[in-house]
């Protein structure tokens, strides 16, 4: 379990971390999401005792990282942003070193063998780390964090540099580990935290801007009144027809997806459902809806919305009106 209270880290008068508080329970996978420089790595460095906080407290399984660092550090496996590898060692030598460094009591050979099989580096066990690919180096870094079977895993961007197949493998592995460990992982890739984490903390400029489950976050910000429809029919007439539906605010033709089939962004007054009416009117003209979905905000949008605040709504509105203008010009 990790408990963080009002953590602050200042460099001069700049706050890299400006008062972060959260709690991560056993068996929970917590995702830190934020742009580069948001304070994710700094927070992780404080949790692992690499940096000291300017103020605030951090407890790892009840041990204060400042007051009782050795007991706290025993509980943590840490994969920093750059895996801390000794390039002149073989994987075997390196893991033996980490095993001794952490004062691990588990039977060495079987324990390390298990880890290597788990992260799939057993085939490079006797190769020099310097000669390994980026993906393998990253996995050796992950293996290092698992030595001694610590309760808490702190992984800073664990899938950077891996190919898509390896990313899926590592995500599956993290999910598996999450069942009996407390895992904190950071990422600036939304789909990643969405795929792996139970709970997401969005950080921007050293502050928490959201702390909720992935599903809740996206539910909070869905937009039922915005539709994306693929309609088979003559474009101009479709637009004219849809505009006559009561409640419709705007309709913009986006792209021609198939011959004669356009995708339209339709926006209605908030709280109105125009789907049935849309269907009925198009049917009466013998035009077909080939696809219809509400433009639910993806985590990307949520993220933008949360981190950029109100300005993003204006930004998107501007963009929409630009599109419309372009469209009108093209028509002329």
């Amino acid at each position: 379990m990790i408990e963080v209270k009002n953590l602050v880290k200042s460099y001069g008068d700049k706050h890299a971390v400006a008062g972060i508080s959260f709690k991560a329970n056993d068996g929970e996978i917590l995702g830190f999401l934020g742009p580069n420089g948001a304070g994710k790595s700094t927070t992780m460095n404080i949790l692992t005792g690499y940096l000291s906080s300017t103020s605030g407290e951090a407890y790892i399984n009840g041990h204060d990282i400042l007051e009782d660092p050795i007991a706290a550090k025993k509980e943590i496996g840490y994969l920093p942003e750059f895996p801390p590898l000794y390039l002149d060692m073989t994987v075997r030598e390196y893991l033996y070193f980490v095993y001794e460094l952490r004062g691990c009591k588990l039977p060495r050979n079987t324990h390390l063998k298990e880890i290597c099989e788990l992260v799939k580096i057993d085939n490079v066990f006797d190769r020099r780390i310097n000669n390994l690919s980026k993906g393998y180096k990253q996995r050796v870094g992950l293996a290092q964090a698992l030595v001694g079977n610590p309760n808490v895993l702190i992984l800073d961007e664990p899938t950077v540099g891996l190919d898509p197949k390896q990313i899926i493998e590592i995500r599956t592995l993290i999910k598996k580990l999450g069942k009996n460990h407390t895992v904190i992982l950071s990422s600036h890739i939304l789909s990643e935290v969405q795929a792996v984490c139970d709970r997401i903390i969005v950080i921007n400029q050293g502050k928490i801007v959201a702390d909720d489950t992935a599903d809740n976050l996206s539910r909070q910000l869905t937009a039922d009144h915005k539709l994306i429809a693929r309609i088979d029919g003559p474009k101009d007439e479709v637009i004219k027809l849809v505009q006559t539906i009561p409640g419709v605010v705007s309709i913009v033709a986006d792209l021609q997806r198939e011959k004669g089939v356009w995708e339209y962004n339709i926006e209605a007054v908030e709280g109105t459902d125009i789907r049935r009416e849309l269907n009925r009117r198009l049917m009466s003209r013998n035009w077909y809806i080939l696809g219809l979905r509400s433009s639910e905000l993806s985590l990307e949008d949520i993220f933008l919305k949360l981190t950029m605040g109100e300005s993003v709504t204006e930004f998107l509105a501007d963009k929409a009106s630009d599109l419309e203008e372009n469209y009108e010009e093209a028509e002329k």
Partner: peptide, 14 residues
């Protein structure tokens, strides 16, 4: 320089 100090300084040793 190699950032291996992150391993040493986060290990449970003084």
């Amino acid at each position: 320089r190699q950032k291996t100090d992150q391993l040493l300084l986060t290990a449970p040793i003084s």
